[in-house]
Design a protein around this nucleic acid. Structure first.
Lengths: 124, 124
DNA sequence: CACCTGTATTGATGAGCGTCAACATAGACA
DNA sequence: TGTCTATGTTGACGCTCATCAATACAGGTG
């Protein structure tokens, strides 16, 4: 379950990821850019997913076991489904270590999204 | 068509708006915070809306007439529908001036969203 | 091997959303 | 007043999505 290339919205360069699009305020986005960036926002556009993402992001080391974060009021399959969506959006990566699966925030993703919203100054 | 209190996600204080939630990475979001913030991300989670929003945000003065931005490949009613959604999410405000309706980016919204993603440093 | 716990997948269901055509409304102008 | 343009609203259709119960899979322990 290595997740080599599941980053549709931020193209991987050598290390980390490069932003997909210029800041929202720089110029009107093209259809392709919008398609790409919207996938990212859409992934965070569900309350349960946002809580799961925040739980991972705020956990020690930006990493958490599913068992640490699955108390969000929905069934276990639903939690798994949402984590998969976040992974497909390139916001999280996962790794199995023994019995448990750990999810981790793709670090440069937050900076890239921030840059998209407020322009420069979003340091990694 | 003044839009006094259509800001569900950022509570208005005296001037501008205050962030609804702490940064994603600070602590796990509560259900209420997630509900609020997800509405914001959801509004940007559609490619057409994202293009419309970017078109307004990048227009001179952060303001644009509908006629300036409605060339996004969907029908006029659909454009109107999406602009309404962005307005309901508190991302845009609108004002009629004569024949045309102008949409404007709620300025502190971008900073607030940026702060939510990357923590501090997102100055207004 | 069998059994248990943690996580993912499948299939179904109901709600929500994006889209359009048709129509309605607002303002400008003659 | 009537007419034209710009924008908003209504109603309907098809599709996507969030959710769950049931099931499958993986890894540990005995």
């Amino acid at each position: 379950m290595s997740n080599a290339k599941v980053l549709p919205l931020l193209e991987a360069d050598g290390q980390g990821v490069a932003p997909c699009c210029p800041p929202l305020t720089e110029r009107p986005m093209t259809a392709e850019e919008a398609e790409t960036a919207a996938r990212m926002f859409k992934a965070l556009g569900d309350p349960v997913r946002l809580r799961l993402f925040s739980a991972v992001a705020s956990h020690e080391g930006g990493e958490a076991c599913v068992c640490d974060i699955s108390d969000v009021g929905v069934s276990q399959p639903t939690v798994s489904h949402h984590l998969k969506k976040l992974k497909e959006a390139g916001l999280l990566t996962s790794e199995r270590r023994g019995t448990w699966v750990y999810y981790r925030v793709e670090p440069s993703v937050l900076a890239a999204m921030g840059r998209l919203l407020i322009g420069a100054s979003a340091a990694a």
